[in-house]
Structures are given as C-alpha cells and as structure tokens.
Amino acid sequence: MGHSKAFHPTCDKEDLEIVQLNPSQAIEIIMDTYGDEIKRLVFTYLKNSADTDDVTQEVFVTIYQKLNTFQGKSSLRSWIYSIAINKSKDYLRSWNSRNKRLREKLAQSSHTITKEEITPEDRTLQKDNSNELFTKVMDLPVKYREVIILFYFKELSTKEISQALKMNDATVRTRLNRGREKLKECLSPKRGGESHG
C-alpha cells in the first residue's frame, strides 16, 4: 500500500478525493489504508487487546459519521489520528469508573487464555511489545508516550503531531525532549543492581 503520508503535514488532493467518494467507499479505503496503524495507536494508549478492538471499531464509526466535516486543513492521516487519540483518551477517562470491575475480569481471564485464543493481531502487538524499548515507551506517562510513539513509531512530523493532539509545536517538541530524557533514564543500567522478582 505504498502510502508515504507520514511526511505530509497538510492535506493533499488524494485525501480530499478519498473523502469525497460516497461514505461507504471512503471508509473502506480509510480502513484498508489506516486500519492496522490505528489499532496499534489505540493499543499504545489502552495496553489491552480486547479494549483496543472495541475502541478501534468506535474510531472508524466516528470517522464514518464525521467524514463530511473533513475540510483538508490537515492531512487525512492527522485528522484520523486526532479522532483515534481522542477516543482513546475518552475511554481511559471513563475507564477509571470501570477500573475495579475490569481488574476482576482480567484476574479471572489472564491465566485462562489458550494459544488458540490469541489472534494474529495479538501476536503482532506482542511482537512489538516484546521489544524492550517499546515496553519502556509504554511505561511512560501518556503525555510523553503519545508524542514518542507518534514521532518515532508512526513517523509523524512535529507539525502533524501538534495537529493530531491539538497543541502547539513547541509543546510537542518539549514533550519529545522530556520523553527522550525519561527513556534514557529507564534504559541506563540502574545503580544498586535491582532484581526483577
């Protein structure tokens, strides 16, 4: 799918043409082009495969409903990322109220998952997750995690990130720098030889 949209901070003609198709066709193209990307992005916020599926579905329903509002002020990719990020954050906010129930559910199911129940998507996410650096990134506070992932893993420019997160460029750069510093601290060997029990 040779889409090299990562480096286009503003809308191009192709973006508008996709959106101007009838909504069913447009959402099909968008899901084919960005489906996996969005799922992985949502996972970086939720860190949970089942919730990731639900929220990803919600993201595409919202994109479908809002297609007529896309005016090309940013790239289609930034616009889609913006919706995915907002849905993920909304979910995390509402998650606090369900936290206890979810914990109980996870405690019951975490040890009962068999190999057959692991989906190909889960495997892909686990592959990413097994990478030490990615795991450390996932441990960062959300405000640093999101900019690091968007910049390094999704290859968005700082301008695209500022559009997707609706914050100014300077804030994005500051968070990128702080996030990098925090990562360096996490990755440098700790003094006093802590053991991981």
Rank of each mutant, 00 (worst) to 15 (best):
S130V: 08
L92W: 05
D128R: 12
V142D: 15
R103V: 10
T124L: 15
Y64A: 11
S75W: 02
I85T: 06
L133K: 13
G72V: 00
S157D: 08
V142A: 09
K87H: 07
S157N: 04
S110W: 00
T158K: 06
S110P: 13
K105A: 13
P141V: 08
L150F: 04
E132W: 05
I80T: 03
S130E: 07
S162A: 05
K73L: 15
S162N: 06
N68V: 12
R145I: 07
K166D: 10
L150R: 04
F70E: 01
Y64N: 06
D128L: 14
T135Q: 15
E121V: 07
P141G: 03
T112I: 10
K143A: 03
K100S: 12
N86P: 04
T62F: 10
W95E: 08
I113R: 08
R101K: 07
K166L: 14
V61L: 12
K87I: 00
S74Y: 05
S94L: 10
F134K: 11
I148M: 08
K105F: 12
N68C: 14
R93I: 07
S78T: 08
L150G: 01
A107S: 11
L102F: 13
G72N: 02
D122N: 09
T112C: 08
Y144I: 00
W79G: 02
T62E: 03
T119D: 08
L92E: 12
R77K: 14
K115E: 15
V142M: 11
D122Y: 11
S94R: 15
N68E: 10
E160K: 10
L156G: 01
I63H: 01
S130N: 09
T69R: 08
W95D: 07
R98N: 10
N131L: 04
Q108T: 06
E104R: 06
F151I: 01
K115T: 15
S78K: 02
E104V: 10
D122Q: 12
D90T: 05
K87Q: 02
F151L: 03
V142F: 01
P141M: 09
T135N: 15
K127V: 07
S82K: 02
Q108P: 00
V61C: 07
S88K: 05
Q163H: 11
Q163C: 08
E160G: 12
H111F: 06
D128H: 12
E117M: 15
Q71Y: 01
D139F: 06
F151R: 11
T135P: 00
E132C: 09
N99E: 15
D139P: 06
L150V: 06
S74C: 12
L156A: 12
S88N: 06
I113P: 12
I85K: 03
S75D: 02
I80V: 11
W79H: 05
E132Q: 10
D90S: 14
S157E: 02
I113G: 14
V147P: 00
S130A: 10
L67N: 03
N99L: 11
A84F: 00
E155M: 13
S82D: 06
N129S: 14
S78M: 04
W95H: 13
T119E: 11
Q65P: 02
L76C: 01
Q65M: 11
K127R: 14
L102E: 14
E146M: 08
I149E: 03
S75K: 02
F60E: 00
S162F: 00
F60D: 01
E132M: 14
S94K: 11
V147D: 02
K66M: 08
Q163E: 14
L76N: 01
R145Q: 04
E146T: 10
K166R: 09
D139W: 03
E104M: 12
R145Y: 05
Y144M: 06
